[in-house]
């Protein structure tokens, strides 16, 4: 299993949260908002600006800097 950063996924691609390499607070925030370990994430939009993902159909926008620190196991 290879883990990739959320910013490397294109719109439509899916993955499972594997690890978050951000600071303590940001990590906790991400956990709370649904990026817990093994949460399924679908990338909705990843071009300019924050990355938008869907977790169970609910959309969350993450600034690029932060999105970069979310590591996913990409679904094949």
């Amino acid at each position: 299993m290879m883990s990739v950063s959320l910013t490397n996924l294109r719109a439509g691609e899916k993955g499972k949260v594997h690890a978050i390499a951000a600071g303590k607070y940001a990590t906790k925030r991400l956990y709370e908002i649904g990026f817990n370990t093994s949460a399924h994430v679908t990338v909705i939009k990843n071009d300019a600006g924050p990355v938008i993902v869907s977790i169970n159909g609910n959309k969350v926008a993450l600034g690029r800097g932060l999105a970069h620190k979310v590591m996913l196991a990409k679904d094949q």
Partner: peptide, 16 residues
Amino acid sequence: NKTIFKGETSYFIMEL
């Protein structure tokens, strides 16, 4: 930001 409030801008997390 250049003068009295230097430092990192916080991350952006926003539910849509």
